[in-house]
Write a protein that binds this DNA or RNA. Structure first.
Lengths: 95, 95
DNA sequence: GCAATATTTAGATATTTGTCTAAATATATA
DNA sequence: TATATATTTAGACAAATATCTAAATATTGC
């Protein structure tokens, strides 16, 4: 997992909202955009950041480009966080 | 939890390294700084961001100021991430 | 109280980032 | 093939951010 890219990606509220929209299933760029008051170009920038972090997958479907969550990376991230704080039986985090 | 502040705080590699250093227990600002090649002033800036996010606690101990992890917020963050991606029995993330 | 040590605050600067407009690319359809 | 729709790319710009130096504040010990 590209830790830095993932955290960077998660640091922006618009991007987190995009991910949230994708929870209920894959959506085209345009469908995602409906919920936001920014230009398609700005949206596309956010998509790029999310792709860099491998948080979303893309697939062209005809005229549209469809985005979907890559749950794997979320799990990795959550695991990493669990490792980052010390808990019982884990004094020092891990590794 | 101040979600935005937490993600912002985690987005910087130096800050994540600071948190990692604190895994093994509380340390003074100076002790933390030994591991990094930046000025005390810059370090202090990072401490502020981490405090804003409630990721660390501080306590003055005589001449020193001692930093320690606030594990609670880490747990909140990890939980939040788990909620953010859909999994079996949780189609839609939740809430 | 004064000097030394630890840390923070203030202010400046360079880089990064989120946004925009305009133009380019890709696909569908008349 | 021409036109419309969907999305991305390029380039510009303002706001946010990480860093620095210099100065301020807090504490200890002489």
């Amino acid at each position: 997992m590209k830790q830095q890219e993932v955290f960077k990606a998660m640091a922006d509220p618009t991007r987190r909202a995009i991910l949230k929209r994708l929870q209920s299933g894959a959506l085209s760029a345009g469908e995602i955009g409906e919920a936001f008051d920014i230009t398609p170009a700005s949206l596309s920038h956010h998509f790029n950041v999310l792709k860099q972090a491998d948080l979303v997958r893309t697939e062209r479907r005809g005229q549209y480009i469809v985005y979907s969550l890559n749950s794997t990376v979320f799990e990795d991230l959550a695991r990493m966080l669990m490792d980052l704080f010390p808990s019982k039986g884990n004094a020092g985090g891990k590794k």
